[in-house]
Computed example of a mutant assay.
Amino acid sequence: MTLTTPPTVAAAAAKVRATPPRRKERGRRGGSRREAVTGWLFLAPFAILFVVVFVVPIVVSIRASMFSEVPSGEGLYGGGELVETFVGFDNFAIAIANQTFWAGMGRVVLYGLVQIPVMTIAALGLALLLDSFIVRRPGFFRLAFFLPYAIPGVIAAMMWLYLYTPEVSPFMPYLPEGTDFMAPGTILFSMGNMTTWTYTGYNMLIFLAALQAAPRELYEAARIDGASGWQIAVKIKVPLVRGAALLAVLLSIIGTIQLFNEPTVMESQNPWMGKGYTPMMLTYNSLLGAASPSGTGIASAYSLLMAVIAGVLAIVYALMQRRKGGNS
Protein backbone atom coordinates (compact mmCIF):
# COMPACT_ATOMS: atom_id res chain seq x y z
CA MET A 1 0.00 0.00 0.00
CA THR A 2 1.45 3.33 -1.05
CA LEU A 3 0.60 6.70 0.54
CA THR A 4 0.30 9.59 -1.87
CA THR A 5 0.58 13.25 -0.89
CA PRO A 6 -2.24 15.51 -2.08
CA PRO A 7 -1.15 17.89 -4.81
CA THR A 8 -1.94 21.05 -2.79
CA VAL A 9 0.13 19.95 0.20
CA ALA A 10 3.00 18.91 -2.00
CA ALA A 11 2.92 22.24 -3.83
CA ALA A 12 2.90 24.20 -0.58
CA ALA A 13 5.84 22.19 0.77
CA ALA A 14 7.75 22.75 -2.44
CA LYS A 15 7.03 26.48 -2.25
CA VAL A 16 8.34 26.65 1.30
CA ARG A 17 11.49 24.77 0.31
CA ALA A 18 11.90 27.07 -2.63
CA THR A 19 11.59 30.27 -0.56
CA PRO A 20 15.04 31.86 -0.30
CA PRO A 21 16.42 32.29 3.25
CA ARG A 22 17.00 35.96 2.57
CA ARG A 23 13.32 36.55 1.96
CA LYS A 24 12.47 34.89 5.28
CA GLU A 25 15.03 37.04 7.06
CA ARG A 26 13.60 40.14 5.39
CA GLY A 27 10.14 39.18 6.59
CA ARG A 28 11.35 38.83 10.15
CA ARG A 29 13.08 42.20 9.99
CA GLY A 30 9.96 43.81 8.56
CA GLY A 31 7.84 42.40 11.39
CA SER A 32 10.32 43.62 14.00
CA ARG A 33 10.37 47.05 12.39
CA ARG A 34 6.56 47.25 12.43
CA GLU A 35 6.52 46.26 16.10
CA ALA A 36 9.10 48.94 16.88
CA VAL A 37 7.09 51.60 15.03
CA THR A 38 3.93 50.56 16.86
CA GLY A 39 5.72 50.80 20.18
CA TRP A 40 7.02 54.28 19.40
CA LEU A 41 3.55 55.40 18.36
CA PHE A 42 2.16 54.29 21.71
CA LEU A 43 5.04 56.03 23.50
CA ALA A 44 4.75 59.27 21.51
CA PRO A 45 1.98 60.97 23.59
CA PHE A 46 3.91 60.45 26.83
CA ALA A 47 7.20 61.48 25.23
CA ILE A 48 5.69 64.70 23.88
CA LEU A 49 4.10 65.60 27.21
CA PHE A 50 7.33 64.73 29.04
CA VAL A 51 9.37 67.02 26.81
CA VAL A 52 6.84 69.88 27.00
CA VAL A 53 6.10 69.67 30.73
CA PHE A 54 9.47 68.53 32.09
CA VAL A 55 12.40 69.03 29.72
CA VAL A 56 11.43 72.39 28.23
CA PRO A 57 10.90 74.15 31.62
CA ILE A 58 14.29 72.89 32.81
CA VAL A 59 16.02 74.18 29.69
CA VAL A 60 14.20 77.53 29.98
CA SER A 61 15.16 77.80 33.67
CA ILE A 62 18.82 77.04 32.94
CA ARG A 63 18.82 79.61 30.16
CA ALA A 64 17.12 82.24 32.36
CA SER A 65 19.67 81.69 35.16
CA MET A 66 22.41 82.84 32.77
CA PHE A 67 20.75 86.21 32.09
CA SER A 68 19.78 89.24 34.11
CA GLU A 69 17.64 92.28 33.40
CA VAL A 70 19.63 95.50 33.74
CA PRO A 71 18.69 99.12 32.94
CA SER A 72 19.72 100.26 29.49
CA GLY A 73 20.63 103.79 30.68
CA GLU A 74 24.26 104.68 31.30
CA GLY A 75 23.71 107.40 33.91
CA LEU A 76 24.58 107.26 37.59
CA TYR A 77 21.13 105.95 38.48
CA GLY A 78 20.66 103.81 35.40
CA GLY A 79 17.30 104.50 33.79
CA GLY A 80 15.79 103.41 30.53
CA GLU A 81 14.20 100.10 29.72
CA LEU A 82 15.32 96.82 31.23
CA VAL A 83 17.49 94.84 28.86
CA GLU A 84 18.21 91.14 29.16
CA THR A 85 21.97 90.73 29.49
CA PHE A 86 24.09 87.59 29.61
CA VAL A 87 25.83 87.35 33.00
CA GLY A 88 27.07 83.74 32.98
CA PHE A 89 27.21 82.23 36.46
CA ASP A 90 26.88 85.55 38.30
CA ASN A 91 23.35 84.73 39.45
CA PHE A 92 24.57 81.45 40.96
CA ALA A 93 27.38 83.28 42.74
CA ILE A 94 24.88 85.74 44.21
CA ALA A 95 22.53 82.93 45.23
CA ILE A 96 25.30 80.91 46.89
CA ALA A 97 26.52 83.98 48.79
CA ASN A 98 23.01 84.89 49.99
CA GLN A 99 22.76 84.13 53.73
CA THR A 100 18.96 84.31 53.59
CA PHE A 101 18.90 81.36 51.18
CA TRP A 102 21.08 79.19 53.43
CA ALA A 103 19.18 80.20 56.56
CA GLY A 104 15.97 79.07 54.87
CA MET A 105 17.64 75.85 53.73
CA GLY A 106 18.73 75.20 57.30
CA ARG A 107 15.14 75.62 58.49
CA VAL A 108 13.71 73.15 55.98
CA VAL A 109 16.44 70.60 56.75
CA LEU A 110 15.66 70.86 60.47
CA TYR A 111 11.98 70.65 59.62
CA GLY A 112 12.57 67.50 57.53
CA LEU A 113 14.69 65.79 60.20
CA VAL A 114 11.71 65.92 62.56
CA GLN A 115 8.70 65.77 60.24
CA ILE A 116 9.73 63.05 57.78
CA PRO A 117 10.43 60.30 60.38
CA VAL A 118 7.22 61.11 62.29
CA MET A 119 5.11 61.04 59.12
CA THR A 120 6.76 57.87 57.78
CA ILE A 121 6.29 55.96 61.03
CA ALA A 122 2.67 57.12 61.29
CA ALA A 123 1.97 56.11 57.67
CA LEU A 124 3.58 52.69 58.21
CA GLY A 125 1.59 52.15 61.41
CA LEU A 126 -1.69 52.96 59.67
CA ALA A 127 -0.83 50.66 56.76
CA LEU A 128 -0.01 47.80 59.11
CA LEU A 129 -3.27 48.41 60.95
CA LEU A 130 -5.34 48.32 57.76
CA ASP A 131 -3.53 45.20 56.57
CA SER A 132 -4.32 43.34 59.80
CA PHE A 133 -7.49 41.57 60.93
CA ILE A 134 -8.24 44.23 63.54
CA VAL A 135 -9.99 46.70 61.19
CA ARG A 136 -13.42 45.51 60.08
CA ARG A 137 -14.00 48.04 57.27
CA PRO A 138 -10.58 48.82 55.77
CA GLY A 139 -12.08 50.57 52.73
CA PHE A 140 -13.79 53.22 54.87
CA PHE A 141 -10.68 53.89 56.97
CA ARG A 142 -8.45 53.91 53.91
CA LEU A 143 -10.59 56.66 52.39
CA ALA A 144 -10.77 58.54 55.70
CA PHE A 145 -6.99 58.54 56.15
CA PHE A 146 -6.41 59.59 52.54
CA LEU A 147 -9.03 62.37 52.55
CA PRO A 148 -6.74 65.15 53.92
CA TYR A 149 -4.50 64.74 50.87
CA ALA A 150 -7.47 65.55 48.63
CA ILE A 151 -7.78 69.01 50.21
CA PRO A 152 -5.73 71.65 48.32
CA GLY A 153 -2.58 72.58 50.20
CA VAL A 154 -3.39 76.29 50.50
CA ILE A 155 -6.88 75.54 51.84
CA ALA A 156 -5.45 73.12 54.40
CA ALA A 157 -2.85 75.68 55.49
CA MET A 158 -5.54 78.36 55.90
CA MET A 159 -7.64 75.95 57.96
CA TRP A 160 -4.74 75.21 60.30
CA LEU A 161 -3.91 78.93 60.53
CA TYR A 162 -7.47 79.45 61.75
CA LEU A 163 -6.99 76.73 64.37
CA TYR A 164 -3.65 78.21 65.49
CA THR A 165 -4.94 81.79 65.87
CA PRO A 166 -5.86 82.39 69.55
CA GLU A 167 -8.63 84.92 68.80
CA VAL A 168 -10.70 82.54 66.65
CA SER A 169 -9.42 79.04 67.46
CA PRO A 170 -12.07 76.73 68.96
CA PHE A 171 -9.59 74.81 71.14
CA MET A 172 -6.89 77.38 72.04
CA PRO A 173 -8.87 78.73 75.06
CA TYR A 174 -8.68 75.26 76.65
CA LEU A 175 -4.90 74.97 76.36
CA PRO A 176 -2.45 76.19 79.03
CA GLU A 177 -2.04 79.94 79.15
CA GLY A 178 0.79 81.22 76.99
CA THR A 179 0.53 78.45 74.39
CA ASP A 180 1.53 79.93 71.06
CA PHE A 181 1.75 77.71 67.99
CA MET A 182 3.14 80.58 65.90
CA ALA A 183 6.03 81.63 68.13
CA PRO A 184 9.52 81.60 66.53
CA GLY A 185 10.50 78.51 68.51
CA THR A 186 7.42 76.44 67.68
CA ILE A 187 6.24 77.54 64.25
CA LEU A 188 8.33 74.91 62.42
CA PHE A 189 6.68 72.17 64.47
CA SER A 190 3.28 73.72 63.78
CA MET A 191 3.97 73.59 60.04
CA GLY A 192 5.23 70.03 60.45
CA ASN A 193 1.91 69.10 62.02
CA MET A 194 0.10 70.59 59.03
CA THR A 195 2.19 68.65 56.52
CA THR A 196 1.96 65.41 58.49
CA TRP A 197 -1.84 65.69 58.62
CA THR A 198 -1.94 66.21 54.85
CA TYR A 199 0.51 63.59 53.57
CA THR A 200 0.33 60.71 56.06
CA GLY A 201 -2.61 59.15 54.23
CA TYR A 202 -0.83 59.44 50.88
CA ASN A 203 2.26 57.64 52.18
CA MET A 204 0.03 55.10 53.91
CA LEU A 205 -1.27 54.03 50.50
CA ILE A 206 2.31 53.48 49.29
CA PHE A 207 2.99 51.16 52.24
CA LEU A 208 -0.38 49.46 51.97
CA ALA A 209 0.16 48.68 48.29
CA ALA A 210 3.51 47.07 49.11
CA LEU A 211 1.98 45.03 51.93
CA GLN A 212 -0.90 43.76 49.83
CA ALA A 213 1.45 42.82 46.99
CA ALA A 214 3.37 40.46 49.29
CA PRO A 215 2.43 36.75 49.06
CA ARG A 216 0.00 35.75 51.81
CA GLU A 217 1.68 32.36 52.08
CA LEU A 218 4.46 34.02 54.09
CA TYR A 219 2.00 35.15 56.76
CA GLU A 220 0.23 31.78 56.85
CA ALA A 221 3.52 29.92 57.21
CA ALA A 222 4.54 32.23 60.06
CA ARG A 223 1.24 31.63 61.87
CA ILE A 224 1.65 27.88 61.48
CA ASP A 225 5.12 28.20 63.03
CA GLY A 226 3.53 29.93 66.01
CA ALA A 227 4.41 33.59 65.27
CA SER A 228 2.15 36.19 66.84
CA GLY A 229 0.59 39.08 64.95
CA TRP A 230 3.19 41.46 66.37
CA GLN A 231 6.06 39.20 65.29
CA ILE A 232 4.61 38.89 61.78
CA ALA A 233 4.30 42.66 61.52
CA VAL A 234 7.81 43.42 62.81
CA LYS A 235 9.84 40.56 61.35
CA ILE A 236 8.04 39.94 58.05
CA LYS A 237 5.89 42.89 56.99
CA VAL A 238 8.22 45.75 57.90
CA PRO A 239 11.23 44.30 55.99
CA LEU A 240 8.97 43.71 52.97
CA VAL A 241 8.11 47.42 52.68
CA ARG A 242 11.71 48.67 52.67
CA GLY A 243 11.43 49.66 49.01
CA ALA A 244 8.17 51.51 49.66
CA ALA A 245 9.78 53.31 52.59
CA LEU A 246 12.63 54.42 50.33
CA LEU A 247 10.15 55.85 47.82
CA ALA A 248 8.12 57.61 50.52
CA VAL A 249 11.19 59.20 52.11
CA LEU A 250 12.65 60.31 48.76
CA LEU A 251 9.37 62.01 47.83
CA SER A 252 9.25 63.61 51.28
CA ILE A 253 12.79 64.97 50.94
CA ILE A 254 11.94 66.62 47.63
CA GLY A 255 8.69 68.00 49.05
CA THR A 256 10.48 69.35 52.13
CA ILE A 257 13.00 71.31 50.08
CA GLN A 258 10.04 72.78 48.16
CA LEU A 259 8.08 73.73 51.30
CA PHE A 260 5.93 76.71 50.29
CA ASN A 261 2.20 76.65 51.06
CA GLU A 262 2.39 76.37 54.84
CA PRO A 263 5.06 79.06 55.48
CA THR A 264 3.49 81.44 52.96
CA VAL A 265 0.09 81.25 54.66
CA MET A 266 1.67 81.51 58.12
CA GLU A 267 3.72 84.53 57.05
CA SER A 268 0.53 86.41 56.19
CA GLN A 269 -0.23 86.57 59.93
CA ASN A 270 3.38 86.53 61.15
CA PRO A 271 5.37 89.19 59.24
CA TRP A 272 8.43 88.50 61.40
CA MET A 273 9.04 85.39 59.27
CA GLY A 274 10.05 87.51 56.28
CA LYS A 275 9.79 86.81 52.58
CA GLY A 276 12.66 84.32 52.58
CA TYR A 277 11.73 82.02 55.46
CA THR A 278 12.15 79.00 53.17
CA PRO A 279 14.11 78.72 49.90
CA MET A 280 10.90 78.32 47.91
CA MET A 281 9.44 81.49 49.44
CA LEU A 282 12.65 83.35 48.62
CA THR A 283 12.53 82.11 45.02
CA TYR A 284 8.89 83.10 44.57
CA ASN A 285 9.28 86.55 46.13
CA SER A 286 12.48 87.20 44.17
CA LEU A 287 10.58 86.46 40.98
CA LEU A 288 7.83 88.92 41.98
CA GLY A 289 10.29 91.58 43.11
CA ALA A 290 9.26 91.34 46.78
CA ALA A 291 12.75 90.18 47.83
CA SER A 292 16.17 91.51 46.94
CA PRO A 293 17.91 90.68 44.68
CA SER A 294 15.01 90.12 42.34
CA GLY A 295 14.37 89.03 38.79
CA THR A 296 13.87 85.94 36.71
CA GLY A 297 17.59 85.17 36.58
CA ILE A 298 18.21 85.01 40.33
CA ALA A 299 14.92 83.16 40.89
CA SER A 300 15.97 80.53 38.34
CA ALA A 301 19.35 80.22 40.04
CA TYR A 302 17.65 79.63 43.39
CA SER A 303 15.37 76.98 41.90
CA LEU A 304 18.26 75.10 40.26
CA LEU A 305 20.26 75.18 43.48
CA MET A 306 17.26 73.74 45.31
CA ALA A 307 16.99 70.98 42.71
CA VAL A 308 20.67 70.10 43.10
CA ILE A 309 20.45 70.04 46.90
CA ALA A 310 17.29 67.91 46.85
CA GLY A 311 18.92 65.51 44.39
CA VAL A 312 22.08 65.21 46.49
CA LEU A 313 20.10 64.54 49.68
CA ALA A 314 17.96 61.95 47.91
CA ILE A 315 21.00 60.18 46.45
CA VAL A 316 22.80 60.14 49.81
CA TYR A 317 19.75 58.65 51.52
CA ALA A 318 19.30 56.04 48.76
CA LEU A 319 22.96 55.00 48.99
CA MET A 320 22.77 54.75 52.78
CA GLN A 321 19.68 52.55 52.52
CA ARG A 322 21.28 50.36 49.86
CA ARG A 323 24.43 49.91 51.97
CA LYS A 324 22.31 49.14 55.02
CA GLY A 325 20.28 46.62 53.05
CA GLY A 326 23.44 45.00 51.71
CA ASN A 327 24.96 44.68 55.19
CA SER A 328 21.78 43.14 56.58
Rank of each mutant, 00 (worst) to 15 (best):
A183E: 03
A183H: 10
L251K: 05
V114Y: 10
P184W: 06
V60C: 00
V168W: 13
G295H: 03
M280R: 14
V118F: 13
K15I: 06
A307E: 01
V154S: 11
V55P: 09
G125Y: 01
S268H: 04
P271F: 08
S303H: 01
L208F: 12
L240Y: 12
F171D: 02
S72L: 02
L305D: 04
A10P: 00
L110G: 15
D90P: 03
Y202G: 00
A221M: 09
T2F: 12
R17H: 14
V53S: 08
G39C: 06
L208C: 03
A14Q: 13
E25H: 10
A12R: 15
L305W: 00
L82G: 09
V59E: 05
P117F: 12
L3C: 11
G27I: 00
T85V: 15
Q231Y: 04
P293F: 11
G112F: 02
L143R: 12
G289E: 11
V109G: 01
A127P: 02
F145M: 07
P71A: 10
R216K: 13
I298R: 02
A123D: 00
T195R: 07
P263D: 11
S300N: 05
E81W: 05
Q321I: 00
G139T: 12
Y199A: 02
V56P: 01
W230T: 10
A122F: 08
A10I: 04
T296V: 09
E35L: 14
E220L: 07
L208I: 07
L110P: 01
I236H: 04
L251G: 00
S252A: 15
A122P: 09
P20S: 13
L259M: 01
I116H: 08
Y202L: 12
F67P: 05
M1L: 14
V83T: 15
S252T: 10
